[in-house]
Simulated scan of single mutants.
Amino acid sequence: MLAVVQSFSNSEIDDQESAARDYTLTVEAVKLKPFFMAGHTFEMTCKVSSQNIKTPRYSVLITAEKTLNDQSNPNGTTRIISLNQDSVVRREDWIDQDRVDGVVLEKVQENEFRYRMYQTQVSDAGLYRCVVTAWSPGGGGMWREAVNGLSNPIQIDFQTSGPVFNVSVHSDRSTIYRGELVNLICIITLEGTFIDPDDMSFDVSWFAMRSVAMDRDPVFLASLDRKGIVTQARRNGSSDVSLERIGLLEFRLRLHGCEDQDFGNHYCLVTPWVQSAAGVWQREMDIKSKPILVAVKMDVLNAFKFPLLIGIGLATVIGLLSCLIGYCSSRWCCKKEVQETRRERRRLMSMEMD
């Protein structure tokens, strides 16, 4: 009887593994509006079909591959919003504080899901996909992951004829020594359409890569948002940084009391904001400047100046003290010996006379 049960259990497992191998899942993403402009709503649906899965449920994740490098996500893929098999929604890496509720993912049919993004920005350009996971009942009210599927990409692209922004970084000096002050200036230039200064603002962030070959992860230093709020990273050394706006299109980063840890390639990342005719602020694409190398050197003269002065001072004091000791010794000790010698000579002369 035990052998029969064991044989039945093994056949059940084989059937489940065979069914798992036969699971199929197809995901199709469809853009509902073929053309739209920045500021409008972007909509797309995720249509799911599966085979050989008994009463499946689906969880959906919307991802985006931005066309520009995102410093918060160097891999290029951002997880925006998800909906699990129990229809519980969760915002993943959506960190735009100005549009906290700007994305919506909802289930419209048993095998169809709709994603909407309100008030789109130029920075939202990229490829969007649906990542779907099929779940099957696993017994005891639990759900078992069956198979995953990835949809075709849906591209968001904006055809704009607006201004073109460029960014460059300049330093006030080429040679930097420990303890000195360094000024790095981020300069923004504008090409194309003229914009009123009141209709544009910028988010400026500074980063450093602690290598010459640009082969390490960037380190955040400081940022100044379009509202003028400065944010600085925590620092371990005694050096400090400050960030300020010194002109309409110029931002200055200061490195106070440079140390060896301030060595590396520094660059600024600028996010322009442009106000449309309707009074809506549009976020443009991020612009990254070319890096500039900050090489901190040791000033040999300054490094040995204080030890040299201390050494000379100590040598002078010791020399004067030695002279004083020698003078006192010759003044008192030698004088006593001379007096005793004179007395002895007088005694000898007296004896000779006798």
Rank of each mutant, 00 (worst) to 15 (best):
R342Y: 14
V169P: 03
V317Q: 04
R234V: 08
G39S: 02
M1K: 07
V104W: 12
C334D: 11
C334A: 06
C130H: 05
S350E: 14
H256F: 05
I62W: 00
I53V: 07
R91Q: 13
Q97Y: 12
Q16S: 09
R79P: 00
L32N: 06
S59T: 01
D215L: 03
S330W: 13
H266N: 09
M117D: 07
I80N: 03
S168T: 15
R234Y: 06
Q51L: 09
S289P: 09
L253G: 04
C268I: 12
R210L: 10
V27F: 02
G319P: 00
L293D: 05
M351I: 15
T45P: 05
V103L: 04
S211G: 12
S171G: 14
F35Q: 12
Q85H: 15
V4S: 11
G237V: 11
I187Y: 11
M351G: 00
Q119R: 12
Q6S: 08
M298S: 13
E250Y: 01
T24R: 13
F36E: 00
S223C: 03
R345I: 12
A38E: 13
F220W: 07
M298Y: 04
V241R: 02
I188R: 09
L321P: 00
A29Y: 03
I154V: 15
T160S: 15
S239H: 09
T193V: 15
E145S: 10
K290A: 10
M349Y: 14
V27Q: 01
Q155G: 03
C186Q: 10
A315L: 13
E340G: 00
L224F: 00
L348P: 01
K33V: 02
A208C: 11
Y118D: 06
V48M: 00
S242V: 07
K288M: 12
E344W: 00
G228E: 06
L320F: 09
E65T: 02
N10W: 01
S289W: 05
M200L: 11
K47M: 06
F42V: 00
V88L: 14
N236S: 11
F8K: 13
V296C: 06
F194E: 15
T160A: 10
R216P: 00
V274W: 12
K31R: 15
E352C: 06
P307H: 02
E43C: 02
I53S: 01
R144Y: 07
K290Y: 01
E337M: 10
L321V: 08
R235N: 10
D215S: 05
S151L: 06
I95D: 14
I187C: 03
S123E: 08
S50M: 02
L83I: 11
L61F: 03
S151E: 10
M44N: 02
D225H: 02
M214F: 15
K31L: 03
A315Q: 04
L308N: 11
K107A: 14
A38V: 15
Y118M: 10
M351W: 06
E344P: 05
A19V: 09
I312K: 04
T55F: 08
D86S: 12
S18C: 04
A277L: 10
P272Q: 09
A29I: 04
S161A: 05
R342F: 11
T316I: 07
L320D: 05
Y23K: 01
V30F: 04
E250M: 09
I95F: 10
F35K: 11
L224P: 02
P272N: 05
I292S: 12
D354T: 10
L181V: 08
